[in-house]
């Protein structure tokens, strides 16, 4: 290879790199324009700036939330316990419901691959793609007001996450024990029970605790559409324009969620 051909190749590489760089910058530029356009549409044009009027007005509007109205506290105990129970029962129901979905949606244990695997996967996507508010609306229409639709909504919402992550864990399990159980003549069910279950149980439990923590957060808002818990209380305070009361309810939510977070942190540490 003579020096001039090396020179030519080098130049070609440099030119190519320059072009890539130009393309990349062009791409960034388009992205930047898109951002500006979106900001213009969403923030600048759509906002009623006169209503907001200056920072002083915003500060005044925020000031209405202070100080917290402590007279609401005595009505808070029952809804807080309710929220907690909705989250617990919803998570338990989600665990029960997720077992068949996991069985269908993990590709190494699904019974009839062509039919049940897509079915399981689409159930997971359906459950995760619909927000908890929408699930709550659907169940309020189906079973009436109260804590019950909240439990169902939270269960439906969490099935997808629990099932998807567990199914992925099942697909990654060590295949040695499965072959061992098959070799001694175990049935499909025995393979799942003795080879797969012991391997995924810690992951599954830590996932469920994580989901329980999130579900407390979700349970605080299902009440906004009539499904029980602290959301109902906050809705009531909003309708009365009692903004100090709203602050108090939010503080109660923070306490409840804080407790949930601490418990779930230590419970997960104990398991892993």
């Amino acid at each position: 290879m003579n020096p001039s051909s090396i020179q030519i190749r080098l130049e070609r590489v440099v030119a190519l790199r320059k072009r890539y760089k130009a393309i990349r910058y062009f791409f960034y530029f388009i992205l930047f324009l898109l951002v500006l356009y979106s900001i213009k549409i969403t923030v600048i044009e759509d906002t009623d700036w006169e209503r907001i009027g200056g920072l002083g007005m915003v500060a005044k509007a925020m000031g209405r939330f202070l100080p917290p109205d402590l007279s609401v506290v005595k009505y808070l105990f029952k809804p807080t316990v309710e929220t907690f129970m909705i989250a617990c029962l919803g998570t338990m129901l989600a665990v029960v419901l997720s077992i068949p979905v996991i069985w269908l949606g993990a590709h190494n244990i699904t019974p009839f691959f062509a039919v049940t695997y897509p079915l399981g996967r689409s159930l997971m996507t359906l459950s995760r793609s619909v927000n908890e508010i929408v699930w709550a609306l659907i169940f309020v229409a189906a079973v009436g007001l109260g804590a019950f639709p909240g439990i169902l909504a939270i269960a439906m919402r969490s099935v997808g996450f629990v099932a998807k992550t567990t199914a992925e864990a099942i697909e990654d399990v060590n295949t040695g024990p499965i072959e061992a159980i098959k070799a001694v003549g175990g049935s499909r069910f025995q393979v799942i029970r003795y080879a797969i279950l012991p391997q995924i149980l810690p992951i599954f439990i830590s996932l469920v605790i994580f989901q329980w923590d999130i579900n407390i957060r979700r349970a605080t808002i299902t009440g906004l559409v009539g499904a029980g818990g602290l959301g109902l209380t906050i809705q009531r305070q909003l309708l009365m324009y009692n903004y100090g009361g709203v602050t108090t309810v939010i503080l109660a939510m923070l306490v409840l969620i804080g407790i949930g977070e601490v418990v779930s942190y230590y419970a997960r540490r104990a398991i892993i």
């Binding site: 923030v43 759509d46 009623d48 915003v58 509007a61 906004l224 903004y243």
Partner: peptide
Amino acid sequence: IMASRSVHEMIWAILFVIILGYGMLPGV
């Protein structure tokens, strides 16, 4: 981080709607 995680995004939306009025700014 803790505070913005703990309050559900729907509650944030309600609070911003009260403070700033209807529209997309509170959503953003």
